[in-house]
């Protein structure tokens, strides 16, 4: 059930998050805080990729076709 719309939304989401991560790295000086924020940002990118792009749920739900 791949949909092109999901692709475009994801593209925007991922590029925005990369920009956010980049800004955090430039402007947050507190090391631990920077580390934590970057960790959150990273997972916010990785989880949607695994879910929408890699269709992880098909492992337990089966194929949609």
């Amino acid at each position: 059930m791949g949909s092109y719309r999901i692709g475009w939304i994801m593209a925007v989401w991922l590029l925005v998050l990369i920009a956010v991560d980049f800004s955090i790295a430039q402007w947050v000086d507190h090391k631990q805080l920077r580390f934590s924020l970057l960790t959150i940002g990273t997972f916010a990118e990785a989880v949607p990729i695994a879910y929408y792009f890699m269709h992880i749920s098909r492992v337990w739900r089966g194929e949609v076709h």
């Binding site: 790295a25 920077r34 940002g41 990273t42 990729i49």
Partner: peptide, 20 residues
């Protein structure tokens, strides 16, 4: 799927190497 996985790996490597 493999390509996405490699991408996810870089999403973790990028902050680890460049940003942290």
């Amino acid at each position: 799927m493999y390509w996405h996985f490699v991408d996810i790996v870089w999403i973790f490597f990028y902050p680890t190497l460049y940003l942290v």
